[in-house]
Design a protein around this nucleic acid. Structure first.
Lengths: 312, 312
DNA sequence: GTGAAAGCGCTAACAG
DNA sequence: CTGTTAGCGCTTTCAC
């Protein structure tokens, strides 16, 4: 492995001068530069990125913690993060978590070890308070309402849009409504937002049995559909947590040859359009862009991105 | 910033002993270990990951070059890569390229600078010969047939399945068939595979006007649909390069109130199921897994993953 | 303009 | 079982 000292020795100049021409720093005489560049080329030399990072005390890496990569929430978010990171010459490292607290803790530790300049949690299993503690080791951004955690955050402004959606259902005369979510009420801010919006609109608690969680994929949606079709014929509308998921949900009703409930999707996916489902577009790519900006920026301002309810 | 020397000094032991404790290496007496761990805890010390990488001459990072993140080919591939990388304790760094040769060159240079242990090209703008040259700086894996480039590769075995699909169209009596692809015939191995399969089955060249390229998104599909609906009423079937894209294509015909051609999708997406479209599942996640294994493995064996034609 | 030297923080061969 | 020491390869301050 050839290094900067070799270049220095062979060119007859010092390492610092070599470093300067490598980094286009300060003034270096034209001939010195040429001589050095010649040796660089001859030895096929390339500076070592890790050594550089070490010396500079900065990696230009941001870690993105994500539960799984196959949900549109995450792909859209990652997309936005990548776009912004690219523009700022940062690199994006994907950190799969499955909401596993131990894993998340491990990622926090790697931040502490300066493997990344910042960490973005697209979602999290660990309590916010725990994340907050690690802020002293590097910037940590979350993608949900930070409440009083003090963490920098961007997130889709969900409640208002959920209200619009539920109001739509109410206007259509639906009174028994199912709700599908990814995680338990206790664990998930999104689930909480959905339920809160429901209760705002209907001025009544959402029956627990209508609040079905653990749904992440199309297949999960189908399972959920099986649950509802077998148990709750009175449910005439369902707020699903994804167009693809709504598609799965629908499958179960088709299989059972029962009339379809009125379905609302989310994420504005092609499958939703195909079925002409009303949906919610949360503009997660934008959330991603802002999340990244918070990750490297100085400002700690929180940003809520408005989402929209769409009748396909 | 507290470092390993501080720990050594304060604990009264040497850096190497501290290092051993930190890495659970060799034998260290229980009391020594305890004493050191105490100091570590007291100073809230964490070893620096970059320094460690430098010292070890290895980063455990693999870079994944991808044209864009919003196509199922790439999301599925990345998914597989992540799964395998996670299992092997590697990190995945996403490198957006848009098939830009200069950018790709830059990524090759970063490999040369030892920023990554390996690079996976999910697709590429640069000629394979150029990629091949950089192999001396680290492992480079491609996700298409390597032909005589000598590059390690995994890829979906497309031609056979495309043949099956075209044979299906032939059996249905279609004679004028459109084909949608992402990139030019000259640039893309996938496009070449599609055309080759067509010609195998129909024993005739695919008319150039029926070979439409530049299609990556649903919206592109719609544009393509507009092109075909306005120009080629004789086309009764179209081989699209994605279920979502087929959906976009379909839009144009619906808007024009013209009878829909028979559409074949790809990637086995929910939208395809919603429309009951025949589709091709290339099992890209598996391709991703194997690509990663090639990236860190010793074997240079190429692996073709069979794909399947599905009648939804 | 250029160079010497002190870091950056850790690992591992070697010696005891 | 523990310590010494020589790297890993680059950046940057401070002199001249």
């Amino acid at each position: 492995m050839t290094n900067i000292h070799d270049i220095a020795r062979l060119s007859g100049y010092s390492v610092s001068t070599v470093s300067r021409v490598l980094n286009h720093h300060n003034y270096v005489s034209a001939e010195t530069r040429q001589a050095i560049e010649q040796v660089v080329k001859k030895l096929d030399y390339a500076p070592n990125a890790v050594a550089r990072d070490l010396s500079r005390g900065k990696t230009f890496n941001v870690g993105v913690v994500l539960p799984h990569a196959d949900h549109p929430y995450f792909t859209q978010l990652v997309q936005g993060i990548m776009r912004a990171a690219f523009a700022a010459n940062y690199h994006v490292v994907l950190l799969p978590s499955k909401w596993d607290a131990q894993l998340e803790q491990k990622y926090l530790e790697t931040l502490r070890q300066h493997a990344y300049d910042a960490l973005i949690f697209t979602s999290h299993g660990l309590p916010l308070a725990t994340l907050a503690k690690y802020q002293r080791y590097g910037r940590i951004v979350i993608c949900e309402n930070p409440h009083d955690s003090g963490l920098p955050a961007t997130y889709a402004e969900r409640v208002a849009t959920y209200r619009t959606a539920f109001a739509h259902l109410k206007k259509l005369g639906h009174t028994h409504i199912g709700v599908l979510n990814s995680r338990d009420l206790a664990a998930s801010a999104t689930t909480q937002a959905t339920v809160a919006a429901y209760e705002d609109v209907f001025q009544a608690p959402l029956p627990a049995k209508y609040c079905y969680t653990g749904v992440n994929t199309l297949t999960d949606g189908q399972t959920a559909g099986g649950y509802f079709v077998a148990r709750f014929p009175e449910v005439t509308a369902v707020m699903t947590n994804g167009d693809d998921i709504a598609l799965g949900f629908r499958r179960a009703y088709l299989a059972a040859q029962r009339p379809l409930p009125y379905l609302i999707g989310q994420e504005h996916q092609p499958s939703g359009e195909a079925l002409k489902l009303p949906t919610i577009d949360h503009h997660f790519d934008l959330v991603g862009v802002r999340a990244f900006q918070l990750a490297i920026g100085e400002t700690a301002t929180n940003v809520a991105i408005p989402s929209e309810f769409l009748l396909n």
